[in-house]
Protein backbone atom coordinates (compact mmCIF):
# COMPACT_ATOMS: atom_id res chain seq x y z
CA UNK A 1 0.00 0.00 0.00
CA UNK A 2 1.24 3.47 -0.85
CA UNK A 3 1.21 5.85 2.13
CA UNK A 4 -0.33 9.29 1.87
CA UNK A 5 1.71 12.45 1.53
CA UNK A 6 3.49 13.20 4.85
CA UNK A 7 1.84 16.63 4.81
CA UNK A 8 -1.45 14.87 5.59
CA UNK A 9 -0.14 14.32 9.13
CA UNK A 10 0.09 18.09 9.53
CA UNK A 11 -3.38 18.59 8.10
CA UNK A 12 -4.80 16.11 10.59
CA UNK A 13 -2.81 17.73 13.40
CA UNK A 14 -4.06 21.24 12.59
CA UNK A 15 -7.62 19.91 12.56
CA UNK A 16 -7.31 18.21 15.95
CA UNK A 17 -5.51 21.30 17.32
CA UNK A 18 -8.46 23.49 16.35
CA UNK A 19 -10.83 20.99 17.93
CA UNK A 20 -8.66 20.85 21.10
CA UNK A 21 -8.68 24.62 21.37
CA UNK A 22 -12.47 24.63 21.38
CA UNK A 23 -12.44 21.82 23.93
CA UNK A 24 -10.11 23.77 26.24
CA UNK A 25 -12.21 26.92 25.95
CA UNK A 26 -15.31 24.95 26.95
CA UNK A 27 -13.40 23.33 29.83
CA UNK A 28 -12.35 26.77 31.07
CA UNK A 29 -15.93 27.99 30.95
CA UNK A 30 -17.04 24.87 32.82
CA UNK A 31 -14.38 25.40 35.49
CA UNK A 32 -15.67 28.90 36.17
CA UNK A 33 -19.37 28.17 35.78
CA UNK A 34 -19.75 25.01 37.88
CA UNK A 35 -20.54 26.05 41.46
CA UNK A 36 -18.01 25.18 44.18
CA UNK A 37 -20.41 23.20 46.35
CA UNK A 38 -20.22 20.26 43.89
CA UNK A 39 -16.88 19.44 45.53
CA UNK A 40 -15.06 18.83 42.28
CA UNK A 41 -11.31 19.32 42.73
CA UNK A 42 -10.28 22.58 41.12
CA UNK A 43 -8.90 22.12 37.63
CA UNK A 44 -10.10 18.56 37.07
CA UNK A 45 -12.15 19.43 33.98
CA UNK A 46 -9.39 21.55 32.52
CA UNK A 47 -6.89 18.81 33.31
CA UNK A 48 -8.96 16.21 31.49
CA UNK A 49 -9.33 18.53 28.52
CA UNK A 50 -5.58 19.07 28.41
CA UNK A 51 -4.86 15.33 28.52
CA UNK A 52 -7.42 14.73 25.75
CA UNK A 53 -5.86 17.54 23.71
CA UNK A 54 -2.42 16.03 24.09
CA UNK A 55 -3.68 12.68 22.80
CA UNK A 56 -5.62 14.34 20.00
CA UNK A 57 -2.70 16.44 18.80
CA UNK A 58 0.31 14.20 19.34
CA UNK A 59 -0.91 10.61 19.09
CA UNK A 60 -4.09 10.41 17.02
CA UNK A 61 -2.88 12.10 13.78
CA UNK A 62 0.08 9.72 13.49
CA UNK A 63 -2.04 6.65 14.04
CA UNK A 64 -4.70 7.82 11.64
CA UNK A 65 -2.11 8.69 9.05
CA UNK A 66 -0.54 5.26 9.32
CA UNK A 67 -3.92 3.56 8.91
CA UNK A 68 -4.39 5.14 5.48
CA UNK A 69 -3.04 3.62 2.32
CA UNK A 70 -3.94 3.16 -1.31
CA UNK A 71 -3.04 1.03 -4.27
CA UNK A 72 -3.72 1.91 -7.89
CA UNK A 73 -3.69 -0.95 -10.40
CA UNK A 74 -4.61 -1.00 -14.07
CA UNK A 75 -8.31 -1.61 -13.36
CA UNK A 76 -9.04 -0.62 -9.80
CA UNK A 77 -8.26 1.64 -6.89
CA UNK A 78 -7.91 0.20 -3.39
CA UNK A 79 -8.25 2.52 -0.42
CA UNK A 80 -7.61 1.41 3.14
CA UNK A 81 -8.26 3.34 6.32
CA UNK A 82 -9.55 3.17 9.88
CA UNK A 83 -7.87 2.59 13.23
CA UNK A 84 -10.77 0.92 15.00
CA UNK A 85 -12.62 -0.75 12.14
CA UNK A 86 -10.16 -1.23 9.33
CA UNK A 87 -11.80 -1.00 5.93
CA UNK A 88 -10.32 -1.63 2.53
CA UNK A 89 -12.52 -0.63 -0.39
CA UNK A 90 -11.87 -1.77 -3.94
CA UNK A 91 -13.41 0.36 -6.67
CA UNK A 92 -13.15 -0.86 -10.27
CA UNK A 93 -12.60 2.12 -12.57
CA UNK A 94 -15.33 0.91 -14.90
CA UNK A 95 -17.93 1.70 -12.24
CA UNK A 96 -16.83 5.22 -11.45
CA UNK A 97 -19.56 7.75 -12.25
CA UNK A 98 -17.54 10.88 -11.66
CA UNK A 99 -14.40 12.03 -9.88
CA UNK A 100 -13.73 15.04 -7.65
CA UNK A 101 -10.50 16.57 -6.50
CA UNK A 102 -11.24 18.83 -3.55
CA UNK A 103 -9.21 20.99 -1.19
CA UNK A 104 -10.10 22.51 2.17
CA UNK A 105 -8.37 25.62 3.49
CA UNK A 106 -5.88 23.64 5.57
CA UNK A 107 -5.22 21.26 2.70
CA UNK A 108 -4.65 24.21 0.37
CA UNK A 109 -1.94 25.52 2.67
CA UNK A 110 -0.06 22.22 2.46
CA UNK A 111 -0.79 21.81 -1.29
CA UNK A 112 -2.52 18.50 -0.94
CA UNK A 113 -5.98 17.42 -1.99
CA UNK A 114 -8.66 14.75 -1.66
CA UNK A 115 -9.55 12.50 -4.57
CA UNK A 116 -13.12 11.19 -4.41
CA UNK A 117 -14.49 8.44 -6.64
CA UNK A 118 -18.27 8.37 -6.93
CA UNK A 119 -20.05 5.13 -7.85
CA UNK A 120 -23.73 4.29 -8.25
CA UNK A 121 -23.52 2.13 -5.11
CA UNK A 122 -25.10 2.93 -1.77
CA UNK A 123 -22.74 2.15 1.04
CA UNK A 124 -19.56 3.20 -0.74
CA UNK A 125 -21.12 5.66 -3.14
CA UNK A 126 -18.24 8.08 -2.49
CA UNK A 127 -14.81 6.65 -1.82
CA UNK A 128 -12.50 9.41 -0.62
CA UNK A 129 -8.72 9.31 -0.70
CA UNK A 130 -7.34 12.34 1.17
CA UNK A 131 -3.79 13.51 1.58
CA UNK A 132 -2.49 13.28 -1.97
CA UNK A 133 -0.08 15.87 -3.35
CA UNK A 134 -2.26 18.05 -5.49
CA UNK A 135 -0.54 17.27 -8.79
CA UNK A 136 -0.58 13.58 -7.89
CA UNK A 137 -4.34 13.79 -7.22
CA UNK A 138 -4.91 15.57 -10.52
CA UNK A 139 -2.74 13.11 -12.39
CA UNK A 140 -4.68 10.20 -10.90
CA UNK A 141 -7.98 11.90 -11.71
CA UNK A 142 -7.04 12.34 -15.37
CA UNK A 143 -5.75 8.81 -15.59
CA UNK A 144 -8.89 7.32 -14.06
CA UNK A 145 -11.09 9.57 -16.18
CA UNK A 146 -9.59 7.97 -19.25
CA UNK A 147 -10.64 4.57 -17.96
CA UNK A 148 -14.22 5.40 -17.07
CA UNK A 149 -16.47 3.58 -19.44
CA UNK A 150 -19.69 5.26 -20.30
CA UNK A 151 -20.98 2.46 -22.48
CA UNK A 152 -22.86 0.45 -19.90
CA UNK A 153 -25.21 1.21 -17.07
Amino acid sequence: MTPLSPSQKNVLRVRTAIFSLILIVFALIAEVAIPGDLELPTGIILGLALVASFLLIFLLPDRRYRAWGYDETADELQVQHGIWVRRRTIVPFGRVQHIDVSQGPIERHYRIGTLTLHTAGTRSSAVALPGLDLDQAERMRDEIRGKIRQDLV
Binding site: W84, V85, T119, A120, G121
Partner: peptide, 8 residues
Protein backbone atom coordinates in the same frame (compact mmCIF):
# COMPACT_ATOMS: atom_id res chain seq x y z
CA UNK B 1 -20.11 -1.42 -7.77
CA UNK B 2 -17.36 -1.86 -5.22
CA UNK B 3 -16.16 -4.35 -2.64
CA UNK B 4 -15.02 -3.63 0.91
CA UNK B 5 -13.14 -5.85 3.30
CA UNK B 6 -13.84 -4.75 6.88
CA UNK B 7 -12.15 -5.80 10.08
CA UNK B 8 -13.17 -4.59 13.53
Amino acid sequence: QSISVDQG
